[in-house]
Design a protein around this nucleic acid. Structure first.
Lengths: 254, 254
DNA sequence: TCTTATCGGTTTGTCCGACAAAGCTAGATT
DNA sequence: AATCTAGCTTTGTCGGACAAACCGATAAGA
């Protein structure tokens, strides 16, 4: 293939991109640690020898990527990318690719089952306490679809957290962000929907506490199957996650 | 909680952010479709009534998010976010969070098994042809760890594609990007490693063609277990994905 | 003494104007 | 008709500017 590697590929990139890349590299390889300051725009201007507008464009790129942020006093600092923010980007991509609810459901089933398995194996007392707190609050709002939907989403986030697997936590988030907003509609549309949901959560938590993987998986599956049955009452699984439908759910981001 | 909702929360956002949000909204809800032009910077300046520098900062934000891009002549147009690019952001996040190989492995196992299940169910002739082509090329470079590692990564991408589940495709990508670069080390370090890898791929493809889910899952598990055994010969699974180690793999992005 | 008000000095967000390089358009040339 | 060329447009970058917000420290008041 390669005949004579005489010349290196010449790197032609706009200045703002090079600024972004340079800062990114320092953060990725750990020379700038999360929380540490990057410097003022003026300093970056001096260091890179480019105009402030150029620096600012580079900064926007990194800021959007979640690698840097501005602290309370608007000074630049490196930071750990928030899963949540990145997941929002992914959810957006899924919307635009018009994925179907079937795809969402199938993947969520896989990931939630993996979550519960991890949680059963490795949940700490703190994790369990958090889940129990969530369950208690859920039981209190069982008649309120909106409130319950929100707590349901939280329950699953806590379950993923309890799995102690951060890769899994990250992987499930994008699908979850699109999957769970429908819960409100479903809980509201099915009589006893709220009660069934809380019941399932209770069994799942119980399984986690008893370290009973089989039961945990079983109830997680039932829980999701409930969602599916509810969803199929109002729409086809092969319907795509629509722009207009998802707009409000998506707009809830900050 | 909420006493008197007398005042709306006043949204104080910098102008460039509002510019980005406005354009993003038009794309998300489908009023601007992928491929359609956004307009020149000058036009945006006129429409939003802000300075070009401000518009450009907003544009950078969207560009980084993969929502817009510049075509061959550098004009702005909406586009579908590429999974690949987004996955790179996520991989970066995983590196910074210093996730362990155990977490990567566990999650990849879940997702690859889900992939093969989907592929067994729904792979098209085209998918199978692609996988067969990959297998053929793999067999030809069985002695070349670097080449084989690359083809291995491709095989798994193709398998996810064959599952016809785009959510799954997206969900597996970040972990895969970190997981598979190690393959080269492992294949190179284990005698017969390359042969075993190709053998596993062959069985997996065979299972997909025969629509034999059990066999597909079995060989996928074996395949990943092989990776795990190989990895444990050189390092602990509890070792985190390190900055310096991952730097070169990560640098391979464009 | 402790709190509050004030006052420069910085830094950010935004604006204005400008220019070279590259791409596109359309008229001029062969 | 095909090609070349000149002009217009657009982007990437630059320099400078200014109001608002923020920081730190000092001065004034309880």
């Amino acid at each position: 293939m390669a005949a004579t590697p005489l010349f290196r590929r010449i790197d032609i990139a706009p200045a703002y991109q090079k600024v972004a890349d340079a800062i990114e590299r320092e953060i990725i390889n750990g020379r700038i640690k999360p929380g540490e300051p990057i410097g003022t725009e003026q300093q970056l201007v001096a260091q890179f020898g480019v105009n402030r507008s150029t620096v600012r464009e580079g900064i926007r790129v990194l800021e959007e990527g979640g690698l840097i942020r501005r602290d309370s006093s608007r000074r630049l600092q490196a930071c750990l990318p928030r899963y949540n923010k990145l997941a929002t980007r992914l959810s957006r991509a899924l919307i635009l690719h018009e994925v179907t609810f079937r795809e969402l459901f199938e993947t969520s089933m896989t990931l939630e089952v993996a979550s519960v398995e991890g949680a059963v194996e490795r949940a700490t007392d703190d994790n369990i306490a958090e889940l129990a707190g969530n369950l208690e609050r859920s039981a209190a709002v069982v008649g309120d679809p909106a409130g319950l939907a929100e707590l349901d989403a939280e329950f699953h986030v806590l379950m993923a957290k309890a799995s102690q697997n951060r890769v899994l936590q990250l992987a499930r988030e994008p699908a979850a962000q699109l999957f769970f907003p429908t819960t409100e509609m479903i809980v509201g549309g099915v009589p006893e929907g709220g009660a069934r949901l809380v019941e399932a959560h209770r069994h799942i938590l119980d399984a986690i506490m008893r370290r009973d993987k089989e039961a945990g998986v079983l109830w997680t599956r039932r829980h999701l199957q409930d969602w599916r049955r509810g969803f199929e009452k109002i729409a086809s699984l092969d319907r795509s996650v629509e722009h207009t439908y998802m707009e409000h759910a998506y707009a809830a981001r900050q």
